[in-house]
Amino acid sequence: MKLTLKIWRQENAKAKGAMKTYQIDGIEGDMSFLEMLDVLNEDLINKGEVPVEFDHDCREGICGSCSLQINGEPHGPDRLVTTCQLHMRKFNDGDTITIEPFRATAFPVITDLIVDRTAFDRIQQAGGYISVNTSGNTIDANSIPVNKHDADDAFSAATCIGCGACVAACKNASAMLFTSAKVSQYALLPQGQVEAVERVENMVRQMDLEGFGNCTNTGACEIECPKGISLENIARMNREYLSATTKG
């Protein structure tokens, strides 16, 4: 396959970026999208140019590092996959592909296609945990039975990989899907009940502080989320928040 790539290049956080066009040849359908970028970079290095920087690590859709806006869509055209799981067989010979970083005020660009997503960490630090000590004097695991249905739902919510595609997909750059996934995981488990009120309040407060936008229920986040995190989580978080604020 021969392709034309339009890629966002930006030297550092302060520099002004721009789209740059590259031609690339010899791409096979079995290659992953990131392997295609590897080919481009190898080419650039051999030509004495500076390769394109992008975040990636596991390359199997679980670490949440990779984060490209491909032809305007976070993680590209395929559904339920991350950029690293996207394969070139989804494209055709002669295609032009635009590649940009995730765009959001709360995700400033660091360089090229890499953005700063530490706002997500700070939301988790504000309350995304259960306050138990880790030194081991806990009760036997099976003394806390959990209804299988709730356990499965908690697990589904907990599979969020913190990639930020939901924010990049949202016209308001809202982080509701991400935040609600964590709140839901704990809300569905008996272990999470004790701190439920403070948790939702603190996490939502931090989310607002970070400059993420409001949720207007357009649902773009759910469509682009590579892990299929459902909008139900947002509804659940809203209920939790409402009951927390009316209690508090």
């Binding site: 945990y129 259960i130 138990v132 880790t134 081991g136 806990t138 009760i139 036997d140 695991a141 806390i144 039975p145 959990v146 299988k148 356990a151 499965d152 908690a154 697990f155 907990a158 995981q185 704990y186 488990l189 272990q191 999470g192």
Partner: peptide, 12 residues
């Protein structure tokens, strides 16, 4: 025990 107390959603 530790992980369950932390809210790790193991299969049930």
């Amino acid at each position: 025990d530790q992980c369950v107390a932390q809210g790790v959603p193991f299969a049930r």
